[in-house]
Design a protein around this nucleic acid. Sequence first.
DNA 1: CAGACTTTACCGTCCGAACAGACGGGTATT
DNA 2: AATACCCGTCTGTTCGGACGGTAAAGTCTG
Lengths: 217, 217
Amino acid sequence: MGPTGLGYPDPAMGEAADRPRNLPVQERAVLTRDRILQAATEVIKQEGVSSLTLDKVAARAGVSKGGFLYHFGSKDALIIGLLNQVMGVLDTELNVLADGIDARQGAFALAYLEYVQEPTKAATDTAVSILAAAAVDDDLLDSTRATFQRWQDRLRHDDGLDETEALLARVVGDGLWLIDLFGLAPPTADERRKVLDLVSTLITDHGAARDVVDSAE
Amino acid sequence: MGPTGLGYPDPAMGEAADRPRNLPVQERAVLTRDRILQAATEVIKQEGVSSLTLDKVAARAGVSKGGFLYHFGSKDALIIGLLNQVMGVLDTELNVLADGIDARQGAFALAYLEYVQEPTKAATDTAVSILAAAAVDDDLLDSTRATFQRWQDRLRHDDGLDETEALLARVVGDGLWLIDLFGLAPPTADERRKVLDLVSTLITDHGAARDVVDSAE
DNA sequence: CAGACTTTACCGTCCGAACAGACGGGTATT
DNA sequence: AATACCCGTCTGTTCGGACGGTAAAGTCTG
């Protein structure tokens, strides 16, 4: 392969990560695993889902194809690993955010809205991962669906919020998220803020939404 | 049929369309084209984006691969054709719906919301087409983005609606649409109706949203 | 016949996966 | 403490097959 038969994979892309030398093998292994996952999301973000090939991910992670396959036995396994990581991050960040909000009610809903204020790295990574999963095999999304169901249940029951208002928060959050994902006429930061303020106010001011509906009848 | 049993594209699924015999050649051609487009959406819906191969689409459309490529010179061309058709349908149906609504304002926004009341065939077809386009090559979505931008502009300017309320309608509509597309904890028909009613009322009752915000300050 | 339409046969490329080892840190044995 | 061994980690290569696309011959209609 290499001219000098160096035996090391060609760094190729400048991104090629610094490979730590003197570390316990196990730690180095999880580092490699993480590098692979990060390389995968980078490939999708920069070159699109169709360019997500084992070779490309391996090259960008600075690992051989065989090394890649040691950590992820198949492409499906890679996507599952991707989703697990990214959904885990999102879940914990969402909870942290909700804990930091002191509202009599709807803290989780407010956190959900806060999270899409601007496109964060975690949200973007999640979006592209879901996109990749949907492209490769729809079934890979099963565990992701379960997580969304948990969020939905928490919004519905544990948040002391009107069910409809809770669902509104989620739909608005997911809507902005979709718009960002596909770049479908995304609103400006200002417009985005205004909409989120509107919805936040609506669900915070107890009964406001219901009053609006009632007064119109 | 075939010498070695493979001469004809395998109808495989019972869907294999009836090919009309006695028609002007041109009409038959556009029929073939349409069959191919429909076959493509069916393949995506039933087997996923990754199964959208030229062979499979051709087989399901009851046409040879060469015949397929006569109508669509490449896979990209197929996706573009798919998007054009489906976005066209959606656009006209949306306009028809908006024309049928007699509201002093926000007719288009209401139509947008009405359209996602339940997952319609047109909406679903559009979603899977966009998904396929995003998976194959992001650039294919350019014209779709332009259409969404037109809708957004119409909502913002031509509808005599508060800008924020207009954007809210679109975000809610797109949100439900995303949730359906990926099957991420979709709400029940009842919940869905309630949310849409809430938003509809909000944007119809002039100033209601603003009142809510103001009264909270 | 002419041209639109359709088929058959075929090609080159790329991809996911399998595989047989190499390296080397850790651990047990002495 | 030195030695020997094991196995987790990673490498380079190979392979079968699928896929997108081409070329040219055939068929039907007008």
